[in-house]
Design a protein around this nucleic acid. Structure first.
Lengths: 143, 143
DNA sequence: TCGTTAAATTAGACAAAGTCCAGTCATTGA
DNA sequence: TCAATGACTGGACTTTGTCTAATTTAACGA
């Protein structure tokens, strides 16, 4: 995350930079994610955006999140089979996932090194490497 | 995967070793997974098991897969937000996921090294580290 | 200002994956 | 044989996400 302030004008610029027309709803959704800087599900975002008075539909939230993701503004985090989380941090980094609470925490990419990635079949391109450290509270047995 | 033969008696032993009563349905489901040695979704397993004549319900397939997972007989692979895949290989290894085709391939764990995993908060235990290399066919741009 | 147009948004129907429940069936042991 | 326990079942239900057709909005030129 390069910037620190996520007020309306800053977000407008951010969207424009990513070829996204900054509509009211899109700014609200961007604000929900970037101001919190946390990993949120579509449902949570929908709730945040309509907290005061309903102003954004479910379809728009989903459309917008997919658009943001396609344009590289946010990143999808797939750790919970039940729903996708969205991450406003697109810098390379990895995730710590608390299996009990569902909480997701970032791990600085610098801290992690992966060596020995296999040679890809010809014509294949790496889209990304996701690393998820699954943790839970309690005992010392791994299930 | 330790054994090579996955006939009925071998699977019966395998289930017993994991404290699972070997019923007909459970053996069928285990056979579907282990004989193919591939990553299958619950839906695919349901289809395989009922290929000849319907003999296992959806509920049983889901219950059984969850049971197998809890008992450490198989492993869940969470790469596709639309469904969970089940992996009969519980040896440490990682996954290559073809975003276009949905195909999942194993990467031998030996090939990969991860260093710099962060110190866990006190009382936390690592349940596992999942590494997913997302690849796709074509160009050279990453989206 | 008005009308045109294209893009964005909407409600609600729909689809798919997975869970739940209450009833039935099977197996075991006395 | 019977009771008890565990396993299985169909189907209703829930949740996440997509789709569609209709409406709204915004931009722009005349």
């Amino acid at each position: 995350m390069k910037a620190i302030s996520y007020d309306r004008p800053a977000l407008t610029v951010l969207l424009r930079d990513h070829q996204i027309a900054p509509t009211h709803q899109r700014l609200e959704i961007a604000y929900a994610l970037f101001s919190r800087g946390r990993h949120l599900s579509a449902d949570q975002i929908l709730a945040f955006v309509n907290e005061r008075h309903a102003e954004t539909s479910k379809a728009t939230v989903y459309n917008t999140l997919n658009l943001f993701r396609d344009r590289g503004l946010i990143r999808e985090v797939i750790v919970d089979p039940r729903r996708v989380f969205y991450d406003p941090n697109t810098e390379p980094h990895q995730h710590l996932y608390n299996v009990d609470t569902g909480e997701i925490t970032d791990i600085a990419a610098a801290a992690l090194t992966v060596t020995g990635l296999p040679e890809l079949p010809p014509g294949m391109v790496t889209e990304g490497v996701d690393i998820i450290v699954r943790v839970r509270a309690g005992g010392d047995r791994v299930r």
